[in-house]
Write a protein that binds this DNA or RNA. Structure first.
Lengths: 119, 119
DNA sequence: TGAACATATGAACATCTATTCATGTGTTCT
DNA sequence: AGAACACATGAATAGATGTTCATATGTTCA
């Protein structure tokens, strides 16, 4: 049986009105990209745990590593990711660096996700 | 210069009280895992766009592919991911399969993320 | 000043992930 | 029944990602 298919879907769109309307209302490409990047940061168990730990109080790298039973290096790498996403901020006190949540958005996003998971 | 370092951080934890308190209040491992998995699903541009498109109305695979200018196969694969995360549901009408958002959580999570990105 | 320490970081490696390609499934027509 | 179509899916591949390892940086304290 020799089929002859088009490489992709034949139709440009079945429901053209719905497509054009959705296209109009869709946020800018860049916004959606940034949004995906943000959620990507939340999309890792280690980072979620770090954020969760910081809900309680600020913590130093060593504390977090101990809490999660992971190496200091791994935690430090992840804190870097969290910081560049502006989800945490840090404060230096001598040798020790304390990390804390950057703002309330973090908890809101976290809680919305939790609501879905624990429905 | 020959340094002699411990393989990991010396201290079990500098601030033991903070660590034990955080450990107590931390949700179960499994919940945090599921939460990270959920955010991971949001953490991709294609999937974010699909969800965003569905805010407007339900759409068939072909429509979404056309809207995002991607192949039907790529969209189908991603819809599968979204469905197993229970973010979308589908409905079959003849040959055509319509996808829609599963519930309101999706938009809430999306909006919280958007608030952070567009602060 | 030098040792000990808390943290940061670059490179390497293994694992995961998104898209493509080819093809399978199930439906609607004629 | 067979052709055309909308969609699903498995395998393969390229690129992204998380941890480890080794080491660098900057601070404190004796």
């Amino acid at each position: 049986m020799e089929h002859k298919y088009a490489e992709t879907c034949q139709c440009d769109s079945i429901h053209e009105d719905a497509v054009t309307k959705a296209k109009d209302l869709m946020p800018e490409e860049e916004i959606l990209y940034d949004l995906a990047e943000l959620f990507k940061v939340f999309g890792d168990t280690t980072r979620v745990k770090i954020l969760c730990a910081l809900f309680e109080s600020e913590m130093c790298v060593c504390d977090i590593a101990s809490l999660l039973n992971m190496t200091q290096s791994a935690i430090s790498h992840q804190l870097r990711v969290l910081k560049s996403a502006k989800l945490v901020r840090n404060r230096k006190e001598g040798k020790v660096v304390f990390y804390a949540l950057a703002d309330d958005h973090v908890k809101h996003i976290f809680d919305q996700g939790l609501a879905h998971v624990t429905e």
